[in-house]
Simulated scan of single mutants.
Amino acid sequence: MRPVLLAVLIALALPVVANAQTSKPTASSAIATALNDPARKADAANDERRKAADIIAFTEIKAGSRVLDLIPGGGYFSRAFSAVVGPQGHVYAVFPEAYEKAEPGFADKLREVAKQPHYANIEVLLQPANRLSVPAPVDMVFTSQNYHDYPDKFMGNVDPAVLNKQVFDALRPGGLFVIIDHAAEAGSGMRDTDTLHRIDPAIVKKQVEAAGFVFDGESNVLRHPADTRTKTVFDKSIRGQTDQFIYRFRKPAA
């Protein structure tokens, strides 16, 4: 191949490689239809703020997918995932027992939702924080603003290595682990998990990769560069505007 032609081909390919690490997938019509489900009327008011369409597209789930929503809180994403995966899919909403003691009532409320025929594909599970398991391998494990909690007292000081290994085991080969969390200062490691409820993105990436995952990309839709990362996420001046990272990790197919 002539040198000039080779250089042109390389130049054209470079932007594709760079963008693979900071992707913002276009939400499909199936996702739009799911989010417009009339049953989600109350949730829909928060879709733009929470970037639901972008995040769901980033998770790569589709009709028939099996999803594990780890510590779903009020169930916002569990209900959205339910609409996307449909009756042939399944959503395991997993609450650690320690979390249920600290934040009682969330699991029961989501169980009531799951009793509705419309949300029959949601299954609520209550488990020890250090014993994550599901009845069948899943396509995606998702946790939003919770990863930083595992090393802390109220969750039983669970080593993130234990969590990541169990997530790895819960996934099918090629499955995805998607983590959203509040960013702490670069180089801070896990210093701020209990005080500011933040975690250094770099330590998350290091810990998850150590479990055997391959980093598969990130989304910047919840980034807020004005956040100094030095205040607690509950500070009124920053709440709802914290700098959040979204990382996607893939379990190797073989």
Rank of each mutant, 00 (worst) to 15 (best):
G105A: 05
G105S: 07
F106T: 09
F106K: 10
F106M: 10
F106A: 13
A107K: 03
A107P: 02
A107M: 02
D108L: 10
D108S: 14
K109C: 02
K109G: 12
K109H: 09
L110C: 03
L110Q: 05
E112Y: 00
E112T: 00
E112M: 00
E112K: 06
V113D: 00
A114K: 00
A114H: 01
A114W: 00
A114G: 01
K115R: 15
Q116M: 02
P117S: 14
P117Y: 05
Y119V: 01
Y119R: 00
A120R: 10
A120N: 07
N121Y: 07
N121R: 07
I122E: 01
I122C: 01
I122A: 00
I122N: 01
E123Y: 03
E123N: 11
E123R: 10
E123S: 14
V124M: 01
V124Q: 02
L125K: 08
L125Q: 12
L125R: 09
L125I: 00
L126F: 06
L126V: 15
Q127A: 10
P128R: 04
P128E: 06
P128F: 03
A129D: 08
A129T: 14
N130S: 13
R131T: 10
R131F: 05
L132T: 08
S133K: 15
S133M: 13
V134N: 06
P135N: 02
A136D: 06
A136T: 09
P137Y: 03
P137F: 04
V138Q: 11
V138G: 08
M140R: 15
F142V: 11
F142Y: 14
F142I: 08
T143L: 07
T143R: 00
S144K: 11
Y147Q: 07
Y147D: 03
H148M: 15
H148A: 13
H148G: 12
D149T: 12
D149F: 14
Y150N: 09
Y150I: 05
D152M: 09
D152E: 08
K153M: 01
F154W: 15
F154N: 14
F154Q: 14
F154G: 06
M155D: 15
M155P: 14
M155I: 15
V158C: 02
V158L: 02
V158Y: 01
D159Y: 09
P160E: 04
P160V: 02
P160K: 09
P160Y: 03
P160L: 02
A161W: 11
A161L: 10
A161N: 13
A161G: 15
V162T: 13
N164M: 02
K165C: 00
Q166A: 13
V167K: 07
V167T: 05
F168P: 06
F168T: 06
F168D: 05
D169P: 12
A170F: 04
G174V: 01
G174M: 05
L176V: 09
V178H: 09
V178L: 12
V178Y: 08
V178T: 08
V178P: 07
